[in-house]
Design a protein around this nucleic acid. Structure first.
Lengths: 286, 286
DNA sequence: CTTGACTCTCCCCTTGTGGGAAGGTGTATG
DNA sequence: CATACACCTTCCCACAAGGGGAGAGTCAAG
C-alpha cells in the first residue's frame, strides 16, 4: 500500500486531486487507517485512476465520470453522453472561432486607427414587443419629430404607452431619394389601429448594436456604416430594417409615462442605439 | 437617472452584473443616493457599458477590461493584449479539436466493441531521471528476471537504488528474432558504470500510457498494439523505445528500498505501465 | 528519542454569475 | 395619509476543479 504522496508520484496526480477524488467518491483509497485517517492506495487502483483521467480528458465532468464508473452505464448511454459532449465542444469551437474573427477585426481597427474605435459593436438578442407604428416616406430627418408627436398623442389617448424607449425603423426603399421611415412606440396593451397607425408585435431579433451619444449628425451615419461593415466582415446579412432606439432624446413632455431620465434638452446628451438585425449569411466558400 | 432595474432593462444586463461591475469599479453608477444607497444610472453610461460588453466578448477578463478602460492604455499595449488573447484562444481551439478527435476515437471503439475498451490511454509527461541500465539481446521474456537480479544487485552494492519503479526499454532491433531489451532501475545518485551496466539520465518524454493489471500475457501485447494504433490515429510518431514500468511485480525482496507496495506474489495483481514516447507526426495532408 | 518529512482536516481563493434572505425605499392606489 | 407592493440594499452561498496554507497529528530513520 502506498501513502498518498507515493501514489501521487506514481500516478503523477497531485495529492490535492487524490483527496478531492476521494471526497467525491471517484477514487476511494484501498484502505484508510481508522486511527490516523491516513489514506493508503494500492497499485491496482491505477487503472481506475487512469480511466478517470482518460474520461476527464474527453471533457466529462467529474460527476459524469462518477456515473460512468459506478452505475456501470451501458454502451448505449455512454455513446449518448459522448455524442452530446462532442456537440458541446463543436459548439464551443465555433464560438471561439467567432471570437477569433472579432479579435482580428479589432486588431485591424487598431492598426488602422491607432486606438480603439469610437463605437463598440455588441451582439445581443432583442425581445419582441407590442408596438404602435406610423410609417411614412419623408424627405428629411426633420420631418420625424411631427410623426412622433402624432403617434405619441394617439397612443396617449388610449393610455397604452409602455415606459420604454421609442424607436425608428429605417425601411429599405428602392427609390432612395426619399426615406421610408416608421416611427414606433411600445405599448402596454393592444389598442385599435387607425388609418395611419398600425398596431402589431415587433419581432424579436438578433442584432448588432451600437450605442451612440450626441446629436443626430454625420457621426451617426458613420456608426451605421460601421455596423454594416461589421456585419459583412463577420458573414452576417441584414434581416430586417435597421432600428434606431431613442434611449435619451429631446422632446417636450407630452404627458406620456416616460421617466425624466429619457429626456434631455442638451443634444450632446442624446443617447441612441442603432440595431442592425442579423442573420447568418450563406457561406462564401467552404 | 434610471434605477438599477430600469437601466438593466435598457441595457439587457442583469441587475446582478451591474452591481458586480459597480463593485469591481468597472461601471460606477452616475449617482448613489447617500441615504438609501440606491444606485442611479444615466443613459449616457450605456456606451461605457457597451464597451465593457464588447471587450468581454473578445474574451478579456473583467480585470483586464478595467485596465483598458481606466488606465487609458495605449493602442500598442492594447494590441499586445489582444494578440496574446488571440494566441490563447488559438491554443484552446487546438486543444478542443484534439479533444474532439479523442472523442471520435472513443465513439468508434464503442461502436466496435459495444462498451469501453479494457484499457485507457492517457497522455502525460514523464520527467527525466538518473538510471542504471543493462542492455542485452535475449530470446524470451523469461530471460528478463535474471537481468534485473544482476542489475539490482549491482546497484544495491553502491547503495544508490531510488525508491521508484524499475522499467524495461524495448529497443527496436532490425532482426526481430531476438528482443533487444534494456532493464533499467532508478538511482538516487551517480555510481560508476561497469562493463555491463551503464549509468545515464533517461530523458523525459511525452508519452501515451496504459496501465495494465495482471500477468504478462497476450493481453499485454494487445495493450501495446492499442498504444501504437492510438498514436497513429492521433498523428503521433514513436519517439524512442517503448517503456514498461513495473509498478507492482513479483520479485524476491533483494534488500533494496522499494516499499512492499511494489511487490506481490500474485501475478493477477501485477501492475505494469506501458509508455510509448511520442512526437508529432508530420502532417499527411494540409 | 528526536527530527524532519508526511499527512490529516479545515478554511479561503480563483471567475463570472445566479439565487435567496432579511430588511429598507419609492410610489401608486384606495 | 396609510398601506400594499414592487423595488432596492447588503450579505451569504453556490458553481468546477482544484491550489495554497495553517495548525495539528503521524511515521520512520538515525
Amino acid at each position: 500500500m502506498f501513502k498518498i504522496g507515493d501514489f501521487s508520484k506514481l500516478s503523477r496526480v497531485s495529492v490535492k486531486m487524490l483527496r478531492h477524488y476521494d471526497q467525491l467518491g471517484l477514487l476511494k483509497p484501498a484502505y484508510v487507517d481508522p486511527f490516523s485517517e491516513y489514506r493508503y492506495y494500492s497499485a491496482d487502483q491505477l487503472p481506475r485512476l487512469n480511466r478517470i483521467l482518460a474520461l476527464k480528458d474527453l471533457g466529462l465532468t467529474l460527476e459524469q465520470i462518477a456515473r460512468v464508473l459506478d452505475e456501470n452505464i451501458s454502451g448505449e448511454q455512454l455513446r449518448g453522453m459522448l455524442t452530446l459532449k462532442r456537440a458541446e465542444i463543436e459548439q464551443q469551437v465555433r464560438a471561439e472561432l467567432n471570437r477569433l474573427a472579432r479579435i482580428e477585426t479589432r486588431l485591424r481597427q487598431i492598426e488602422g486607427e491607432g486606438t480603439l474605435p469610437a463605437h463598440d459593436i455588441v451582439l445581443r438578442t432583442v425581445p419582441a414587443q407590442l408596438v404602435a407604428g406610423l410609417r411614412q416616406s419623408i424627405e428629411a430627418d426633420s420631418a420625424v419629430a411631427p410623426l412622433f408627436d402624432e403617434l405619441e398623442t394617439y397612443v396617449a389617448r388610449h393610455k397604452a404607452r409602455a415606459a420604454r424607449a421609442p424607436l425608428l425603423l429605417c425601411h429599405e426603399s428602392e427609390h432612395r431619394a426619399r426615406l421610408d421611415l416608421e416611427v414606433v412606440v411600445p405599448l402596454t396593451n393592444a389598442i385599435p389601429a387607425s388609418a395611419r397607425v398600425t398596431v402589431y408585435e415587433l419581432p424579436g431579433i438578433e442584432a448588432a448594436c451600437i450605442v451612440f451619444t450626441g446629436p443626430y449628425d454625420v457621426r451617426m451615419a458613420e456608426a451605421a456604416a460601421a455596423l454594416f461593415r461589421w456585419a459583412d466582415a463577420h458573414a452576417y446579412q441584414a434581416a430586417g430594417p435597421t432600428r434606431e432606439v431613442f434611449l435619451r432624446f429631446g422632446a417636450d413632455d407630452l404627458g406620456f409615462p416616460l421617466p425624466a431620465a429619457y429626456l434631455t434638452h442638451e443634444p450632446a446628451a442624446y443617447v441612441t442605439e442603432l440595431q442592425l438585425p442579423l442573420r447568418r449569411a450563406p457561406a462564401r466558400q467552404a
